[in-house]
Design a protein around this nucleic acid. Structure first.
Lengths: 340, 340
DNA sequence: CTGAAAGCGCTTACAG
DNA sequence: CTGAAAGCGCTTACAG
């Protein structure tokens, strides 16, 4: 028998194999989209974690509505040992009816409103706060935010961080997140930049495209009271705005500082290089896989008491930190010196 | 019975399903790596084609040696309806012994030396020729190539195109590809730039990294007889070289023209924006999937005679064309005018 | 230690 | 038209 096996030409049929072993060594990944470098980096992070564990990735993307998401999830059933799902259309009941209940599922960048056991997310709020504080520390006072689409969760969180930090610049971001606006606890230190309850002066609505950033830049260049800093909700819009302001003859950062969000590769090569926020997508991927590990590990050991040494990141919700990446586009006073 | 099925909670087990239907609706994708925007774009192209056909993608990457490639291929067996494989370590026998014989396989960017039924590849040779001719048309005469690693097939083809076009600039690239160097047919028209049999003056060896392009740029800036154009084998090295030349006080494109290869996103944002070669990766993906379609379609209809209307791109080898993308970094004379 | 049987969850032809 | 049986290619426990 063993000779026959060794007599080459034979390769096991993995589908049949996993039917009985109940292991597929595959993680399903559902993404809303494949465009933009954000998703490339995310997939890269997932791939790295998968490789380290000897797992494969079953990838699907571009799901425009709930029905499509359901179909994609159902297609994963029995073919994956866990699923990583990122979609604006996902909610607990959809997952329940599309996926076997015993399958570990981790939601990526899901709003807090969707109740799920496991969630990993980027700290969009904290990153936006950090950027506002950085711009303030540069001496900027009239800061404008170009937001992403209002139905996008990341965009909303970044906007929320912008507004919160503008209103209460001296409070730590970590506290801001918890504080309710109507809280009785007030920050007593002086607030340099005031921001009205009407945000229309301080926020322009974009759609994450370079084109929308460009249009915003044109509008800002025309204003009588020009901002001294623009914080775009992503790098694409920041570079669009940069080009519009430069075309209008404004010096960046001399007259206007510019900053983005995401730290996509091209930010290093613009003139000036772009200050931005880097999300640790590698940590996000690691957190997601550790949750998956914990989830699948608990299934076979369901009868045994949980060991006192839990896996490192077996928390139900991992918020990965962001890093401020300061480049020339936001060196406002320095830029002024150079320009003068 | 039908009521029970509709009584929710039930989701079919796809692994068991595909065991009997012999269809997995999945295409396996094996990549050498996930780094760089080239792979992001490639995956995006594959994803788009897969979506259009209702297929899923089983992705694995970073296979450092033949054994790993074999393992990854074996893991696909019985789990995919076809495989797209791109790897420096792949050869016909490896595929034979790792994958079921009836599985359609398409090799991506494989050297001609590996004999395989289906191959899709980027026209690296033609693209490099086109770039050299463009630089010559700008009036450049002392053109230097920064090559990629010598064990990389794409890098070798680009180098081959550079040398061929430098030696016989007035011959069409399509002809160059076919002509043997020892061919008796000689080009009788004048050859403007002469290139010796010793390439050491005209070719610096890099490794596709920005760092290696930067070092090459430093070396070129020190030369007594500086080149008037640098053609790097990819965009990363081109931008590295650009930064080194600018640091050395040289005007680009005023004193030296620079060009890259790949047209990754950041090339639009450098100063000056980078002239480069765009490979139609969407067409490469389409060609690959059409071969897969043709391959799997023929299996069930093995007894019937092939229909007289074959699928469009059912050729055994698809070479996707490249496009020259001219931006400011290569506008040599214009750059000189500006500079002066 | 070796070999035949049962079964993973499905689909598909085939009796009733 | 409905329902029980066979079988996809494997693995695993269980007889011999």
């Amino acid at each position: 028998v063993l000779r026959a096996v060794k007599a080459l030409k034979y390769v096991p049929h993995e589908s049949a194999r996993s039917l009985i072993t109940r292991r597929t060594h595959t993680i399903g990944v559902l993404l809303p989209d494949m465009y933009g470098e954000f998703f490339s980096e995310l997939i890269r992070g997932f791939d790295k974690e998968a490789r380290a564990r000897g797992l494969y990735l079953l990838v699907t993307s571009s799901h425009g509505n709930e029905a499509e998401v359901g179909r994609a999830l159902r297609a994963m059933n029995g073919r994956v040992d866990g699923a990583l799902v990122m979609s604006p259309f996902v909610h607990a009941s959809l997952i329940d009816e599309s996926l076997s209940t015993k399958l570990p599922v981790v939601l990526v960048n899901a709003p807090k409103s969707v109740k799920a056991r496991h969630v990993v997310a980027v700290d969009n709020f904290g990153g936006a706060c950090a950027m506002v504080r950085h711009l303030l520390s540069q001496g900027c006072r009239r800061i404008v935010h170009i937001s992403g689409p209002s139905d996008n969760h990341d965009a909303r969180e970044r906007l929320r961080g912008f507004v919160a930090a503008m209103r209460r610049p001296y409070v730590e971001a970590s506290q801001l997140g918890e504080v309710n606006d109507s809280s009785a606890a007030r920050d007593l230190r002086p607030r340099a930049p005031s921001i009205g309850s009407d945000l229309s002066e301080n926020v322009l609505v974009g759609d994450f495209s370079e084109e929308s950033g460009y249009r915003a830049g044109q509008e800002l260049a025309r204003r009588r009271a020009r901002p001294d800093a623009v914080f775009a909700a992503n790098d694409m819009m920041a570079v669009g705005c940069l080009l519009a302001l430069q075309e209008a003859g404004l010096r960046v950062p001399g007259e206007v500082a510019i900053a983005g969000f995401d730290d996509v590769p091209f930010t290093r090569y613009t003139s000036p290089p772009l200050t931005t926020i880097r999300a640790r997508l590698d940590e996000l991927a690691r957190g997601a896989f550790e949750m998956l590990d914990a989830g699948s590990a608990s299934t076979p050991a369901a009868n045994s008491r949980p060991a006192h040494s839990l896996p490192p990141a077996a928390a139900d919700r991992v918020i990965v930190p962001t890093e401020l990446v300061v480049r020339r586009s936001s060196q406002w006073r320095t830029g002024l010196d150079e320009g003068a």
